[in-house]
Structure formats: structure tokens, C-alpha cells
Design a protein around this nucleic acid. Structure first.
Lengths: 195, 195
DNA sequence: TCCTTAACCTAACAATTGTTTGTTTTTTAA
DNA sequence: TTAAAAAACAAACAATTGTTAGGTTAAGGA
């Protein structure tokens, strides 16, 4: 175990692990987890079904890998966006806008993380939930920094906020509302009085 | 065609159509649409797989029937709850509370309507969406009656509200927050200023 | 150059799936 | 009482599924 194994593996010319992951993310995001077959993924990655099992032990393991990368991507993006702002509400808004842009537009991986629910893969439901929770914890910090009324339940605020923005995946169509605007307005509706 | 056909059919002693629908709703709500097999439903309804096809032409048709009943149930409940209040915000709150109670506790049908997304059954996706939209239109009226700031986008408010409360299905566990409280607090967070 | 092994192919298997077909039982109307 | 219609059974089919086992190719260190 020299630690060079991973690098050697990755440097092999014919290694198409990334192509497999990309294909899986794209298809899971488009058709859903159950409706996507290993043959679909193999075909999109330019290989045969059986070859996928050199890279992943099972379909569920592939989903898990996609989820993992999704968390890495969206967390990096969103934390960077938040870090660019100083004022607490601005930080939250920046994070939310980045989040919405990522899950609606920019990353098939993130789309999978939001659209594919743990119930779709019961055997690894706990792992999927843990990955999601790990990411959502970022919002805990952002909300804790807000100057909130004492009677505001912060946990419920977080769940409400995340629920509202993630639900946009169900109704979003390019054109009417931009992802950035969706993020901004949702935050504003929670921040300012409506009545 | 005397119009008595339906009644005759329904009055048959051994007609277990309702048992089939209930079984379908329960299993779709618990395991999801794809993970539920016709054998599961038949077994739960106390009959054999093939017998289901006397009542429904396909699995998708069964889902459609469950969706249809879900809309009937939740709309009746929620509109009645709203009608009991006079003030606009109170009406909305009553409707939201009723909605949340129904999809978290009281109706497997409603659970299916929220938890099973059109993508799960692509062939009837349009019908499913139409049914859902038909119900959600109730909220349009309730929101239109609110005394809102002129810069509030009512459509986005509706989508945000519905998204937030429906998302509770993903994290709700009996105990910590009651369905009624979830509904009340979500409305309050949108109504009152938090900062 | 040789030889290990990463990477992929080929070809299938076993299980599960929604569905169909023909038959039987049960109910209802005449 | 009888015959038609309703409701369910019994048994399978055809397609699809995730997965596996063994063979093949090519890369890269020695």
C-alpha cells in the first residue's frame, strides 16, 4: 500500500470511470433511479452492461457514488458563494441562490441528490440520508447567524426553506423564473413581512 | 344505458374494488409506485394478481384511480376547513393545516398524490399533473384574498408554500412536530417578519 | 521484452415483472 | 329455477431486470 494505487488506477488511459458516473448522474436525473437500467447507463457510457461491474459492485453502489459526488459539488459551490458575503441574510441568500442554480441547471449530480429519494433504494436509504443531512448541515450554521425573533423555530425554518427551494425541481421550467430569482424571492418571502 | 349500471356494479356483494384501491394506496404510499408490484396489491386485497385486471386495465390505471380519489378526499377536507374561517390569513392557515394533516396522517391516497411524482409513471404523467394542479388551484383563491404587498409574486408564494408543506413528508416523524403545528408555523413564517 | 493486471467484452442466468388467456365460481335478474 | 353477467381463479407467457462467469485486450513497470 504505497498510496500510488489510486493514482495509477486513475491514470490508465482506458479508464472510463468518470464517463460511467456522468452517465449515471445524467440518467438518474432525467428518468429517475428505478427507471434507469444498467443497460441504459452502459450504453450512454459507451460500454457493455457487464463492464459496469468492474467499477461498481451494484447499481446501488453506483447511486451512492453519484450521491457522494453530488454532495462534494454542491457543498463546495454553495459554501464558496456564502463566504463571499458578510451580512448574515446576504450569506444565506447567496447560499440559497447557489443551491437552486446547482440543482436546477448546473449539476446532474445535484439533481439526483434532490430528486432521487432514499425510498427509491431502501437498502442504502440510511447512507443516502446521511449524505444529504451532512450537506444540509451547512444551512444550520447560516441560519444560526441570523438575527431572528426568539419565537422562531430555527429547525423548522431550515426545513421549510430547504423544502421550498428543493420543490422547485418539480415545477421549474426554463423561462419564466430564473433559478437565481427563485432563490432570492424565497429568501425574501421569509425575511420580509408579506401582509 | 339506464344509468343503473354503475350502481348495480357497486352493489355487488363480492365486489372488492374498494379493497383493491385501499391496498394500492397503502402500498404506493409506503413503498412507492415502482417498488409496489401487482402481486403485492393483490395479496393485500386478498385476491390473485390476474384478478386485478378485472377492475383496472393496467397498473398505471390503478395509480390514476388512486390519484383521483386522493384529489377528491383532500379537496373536500381542505375546502371545508377553509370555509370555517372568515379572515383571509386564517382561511389559508386552516387550509394548510388540514392539508398537512391529511398528507402526513389521515389519508394514504393523499400520501400517494404527494409522494408519487409524475416521473414515476411517464405514460400518464400529464394526467397526474393535471389532477394535482386541479387541487392546488384551491390555494390560488386563498392567496388571492390575502392583503399582500404589491411586490409579492403570488404565484411564487403559492409554489413556495406548497413546496414547503409537501416536503414535510420527507422528514416528518411522529412526535416532535405535530402536522397541525407544521402547518401553522409555516404559514406564520411567511406571514410575519422573521428578522 | 515479458508478464501482471486493469479494463472491458461476450454471453448468458435466474429472478421478477406486468399482463393475458381460459376456466370456474358466485351473484343477480327474469 | 335458470341463464346471463360479474367477479374471481389458475396457470402461464414474454419481456426485462440486475448480475455473474469466463474470456480478451492492452497498458506499464520490471
Amino acid at each position: 500500500m504505497t498510496g500510488a494505487t489510486a493514482k495509477t488506477k486513475a491514470s490508465r488511459a482506458h479508464n472510463r470511470l468518470k464517463a460511467v458516473l456522468d452517465a449515471g448522474a445524467m440518467l438518474f436525473a432525467t428518468k429517475g433511479y428505478k427507471a434507469t437500467t444498467m443497460r441504459d447507463i452502459a450504453s450512454a457510457a459507451g460500454m457493455l452492461p457487464g463492464s459496469l461491474y468492474y467499477h461498481f459492485a451494484s447499481k446501488q453502489d453506483l447511486l451512492l457514488a453519484v450521491y457522494q459526488q453530488a454532495v462534494d459539488e454542491i457543498r463546495t459551490r454553495t459554501e464558496a458563494a456564502a463566504a463571499a458575503e458578510a451580512e448574515p441574510w446576504s450569506r444565506l441568500e447567496a447560499a440559497v441562490v447557489s443551491h437552486v442554480e446547482t440543482i436546477l441547471d448546473e449539476s446532474n449530480y445535484a439533481k439526483v441528490m434532490i430528486g432521487v429519494v432514499p425510498l427509491d433504494a431502501p437498502d442504502i436509504a440510511d447512507e443516502l440520508t446521511a449524505l444529504r443531512d451532512g450537506y444540509e448541515r451547512s444551512f444550520k450554521t447560516l441560519i444560526a447567524a441570523l438575527p431572528l425573533d426568539s419565537k422562531t423555530d430555527k429547525k423548522l425554518l431550515r426545513l421549510t426553506l430547504i423544502g421550498a427551494i428543493n420543490a422547485s425541481q418539480l415545477w421549474y421550467r426554463p423561462g419564466r423564473y430564473s433559478p437565481a430569482r427563485i432563490g432570492r424571492e424565497v429568501v425574501r418571502m421569509l425575511r420580509e413581512p408579506l401582509g
